[in-house]
Amino acid sequence: MEKTHSCTIVKKTMLCPDTYDFVVNFPQEPKPGQFVHISCGEGVMLRRPMSVCDYFDNNLRFSFAVRGKGTKLLAQHSVGDKLDILGPLGTNFGVDKKGDGVSLVIGGGIGIFPLFYTAKFLGEKTEAILGFRTKDLVIMEDDFNAVCSKTHIVTDDGSYNCAGLVTDIFKERLQKGDITSVYTCGPRGMMKAVAEIAAENDIFCEVSLEERMGCGIGSCAVCVCKIKGKYLKVCQNGPIFNAREVDFDE
């Protein structure tokens, strides 16, 4: 039988203002792209889904930005505290479908977290294209540099590296003709643009979707998104979907 895990926080760091990085003891090895469902503490009922950012030596890393009551409460936990965690849950990125060429992980803002763990599975020919609003929000550059052959960083306002969008770099990078797969996570508009470019160039592309979630295991059917005209559950049928099948405008 599956069960929830009582996990001790072993490390807590702040990545940038209001964005935290936790490492907890965790007994089950996740697949890249999967998520865990975390109880934030007394006063908040529903768990909050967090993408797996990394897994090593029975330690699970997840990172999150403080956005509401749940994440605020979660951020107040310290090293040594216990967290009630359900998972790993959901589908995984098809890293076995990466092809013979270069794989790209394309992320925006706090959407980059699942891509780090995924990049580790994709191997040395992987490149990252990461976009952030501004310099102060640029995070995990060293992490991605360590596992990717190249890490391209852009900011909306040009305060760090060049100004632009991840799709600008993506289009530029396509010129070489060696890209065979794309894995993306970030704001919906960004993922839609990435998916369109990948489709135009006939490149395998998977996206990690997000939706307000309830149970996390597929029982309550609240976290749906439209896939090929049908509502599917992000927690159970996803969070990873083939980009071509997602109805981004629904």
Partner: peptide, 8 residues
């Protein structure tokens, strides 16, 4: 119904 379908 369309999402979001839940709010705490």
């Amino acid at each position: 119904n369309p999402p979001p379908r839940i709010a705490e």
